[in-house]
Design a protein around this nucleic acid. Structure first.
Lengths: 362, 362
DNA sequence: ATGAAAGCGCTAACAA
DNA sequence: TTGTTAGCGCTTTCAT
């Protein structure tokens, strides 16, 4: 805390006017004579007056501060989201408090509680996947504006969501492979659910409210199913590679896959972590990209342009996601309609050297 | 802002005691009877009371909030620093506000002003390189605790600094090459200053106050000079590659370098951006790593383990840097001695496949 | 147009 | 041990 802070009273004294007069000038509201305005402003400048937002917040009930709660700001996806959010918030005169949860529900609950104590005007959160997101629901019940970032769970249906269109992301990648002539396309996914369950949903994901409670990974899976179906191709469970959520697991899954002879001519990995594992696995098996196998990864990471051949990817609009979340959140805070909305942002397919028509088609 | 917030008065009423009695219980200070304590706590719990940190801050003068000001949180180095800082701060009961400056002095000045208005208790800043950091100096004059992150400039000598030991980083990398038998080692740097200027300083950088006003890149350069000198090797200006601060520039500088026959058997790039440019340049020239050229990069980026051969790097303790900054800052805020201190963190050399003895030595 | 005064929620003397 | 009260810096009626 600054020691000898200049208050509005000091300014009023220096200018020889009343406290409330000075306040009116400095907050630019109410009517003031030109003479008084200049006197006050000069005094404020002379003294180096700096408004105390704390006091303002006490009176007005608005702190002009929002919180962002994510698993880990050091993960590139979230740091990009934060960047977009912070910039847009700042442009709207709003500051941003950050919390990491490490995907721990207790840490998340505590973070939310702390942000609420700080009286933030709203919160953007990529929630921990959990059965009962009680902490979030509690704050929502208290009418604290909340926006979900890229994740939604049962129980949070009534909150606005800003998300990448994951169905479209994978659909686009897989369709591009199909258009090149690929017919047997592998999918590397962390989804553990039965394919049949997602199959059932795949016809109805056009409705954001059917789709949004699904995890991004499940949505991407559905994108795969839809792309195949649209092209009249059969879905073969042999082409679906299930993996744990680590590079090592992904690498192993891909190596096993390549060891079996599945006839696959292309592979798509549905996540950043899985992508690097997949790439390693392909290389470990000595399979040549794109001659023997075309490959499309997820997220435009550094390494995708450093390796040879360079890797095609589906790129998520990360900063844009953060910026949109900020816009939506600030909108709600400032009184915009509050009915839940799903904002779906378009991913982009970046084509590089790792993709080619299948061998027999050349 | 939460709408119908429960205040301490509500709690007092519910418990049938005075406002200050409730306050004493809830803030755990002053003496209270056991009976009253339970009554108040039960009431608070029943009502879902949540302390208003705004009001607390108004009274106490401490917001338990700090600000971090960096060029761009989306840059991996800074997001890791932020992560370390946020975690450590949180553990000390302190929240973190983030600002990006994009290396723009005006944006930085404005950010600092806004943080001061929010009455943060302190600021950690990686300042924009500029002639006259007036905004920082102003806040310092107002006795706002400030810690510098990894950068110091003339005029900021009296502020504590938390930094990686850049001299040691490059010294270590270059020495490891020398120990393998390399005698002609290239250095890729963004430094534009004459070598002679840095040569003069290189004997005195043991003193943190000689070293710290230098940019990290200059300190790394000096580390190179020291390693060579220590080994009795001559410094050859032909081996010093100057590059602008972009991947493209770095690639071009390295390609030019490799086109000339300098007899270099090893190369060290002194920054993350320069490293990826350098690697591209080496590959573009078809020079084989490590057979024809050993290579050590800077910062452990994703791609360094995705390419073949994998790349040795000097790794900075990024999260630790943030954590240390938080510890130092909170220490000062809580009244620790305030004399300026330089905290130098040790980098680590990670050895991978890109390094081998020079051809003639094998 | 200007000033006086109340009050946001909390803490900390001071009294009782 | 408990209650009363003043006040942190600001905004905002309400008089004047």
């Amino acid at each position: 805390m600054v020691h000898e802070a200049v208050t509005i009273i000091d300014v009023a004294q220096e200018a020889g006017v009343s406290k409330s007069a000075a306040a009116r000038v400095l907050a630019r509201r109410g009517s003031t004579s030109e003479t008084m305005r200049t006197k006050v402003l000069e005094a404020a400048h002379r003294l180096g007056y700096r408004p105390n937002q704390l006091a303002r917040a006490m009176k007005s009930g608005a702190t002009n501060t929002i919180g962002i709660v994510v698993p880990d700001v050091a993960i590139p996806f979230f740091s990009a989201v934060l960047r977009g959010l912070a910039d847009t918030a700042r442009a709207a005169g709003v500051e941003v408090l950050v919390s990491n949860t490490d995907n721990d529900a207790d840490v998340e609950a505590r973070s939310l509680e702390l942000l609420a104590e700080q009286r933030v005007d709203g919160i953007a959160i990529a929630p921990v996947f959990q059965e009962d997101p009680a902490a979030i629901i509690r704050l929502q019940a208290e009418e604290l504006p909340i926006v979900l970032l890229d994740r939604r769970m049962p129980g949070l249906e009534s909150l606005p969501l800003v998300s990448v269109d994951h169905v479209a992301a994978t659909e686009r990648a897989v369709r591009s492979l199909i258009e090149l002539g690929h017919r047997r396309i592998g999918l590397l996914t962390e989804v553990t659910r039965e394919r049949a369950v997602l199959d059932d949903l795949s016809g109805r994901v056009g409705d954001p409210y059917v789709r949004s409670p699904l995890r991004p990974s499940a949505q991407r899976f559905i994108g795969y199913l839809r792309a195949l179906r649209e092209a009249g191709l059969e879905v073969d469970d042999d082409l679906i590679l299930r993996s744990g959520y680590t590079t090592q697991d992904a690498q192993r899954a891909v190596e096993d896959f390549l060891a079996r002879d599945t006839g696959a001519t292309a592979l798509h990995a549905t996540d950043a972590v899985l992508s690097s594992g997949a790439y390693r696995g392909i290389r470990a098996r000595g399979v040549s990209i794109p001659d023997q196998l075309s490959f499309i990864g997820f997220d435009d990471q550094d390494w995708t342009t450093m390796v040879q051949p360079t890797v095609s990817v589906v790129e998520q609009p990360q900063q844009h996601l953060g910026a949109t979340a900020a816009t939506v959140l600030v909108g709600i805070i400032r009184g915009a309609a509050t009915e839940p909305v799903v904002h779906l942002l378009e991913p982009e397919l970046i084509t590089r050297e790792s993709v080619a028509p299948p061998a027999q088609a050349r």
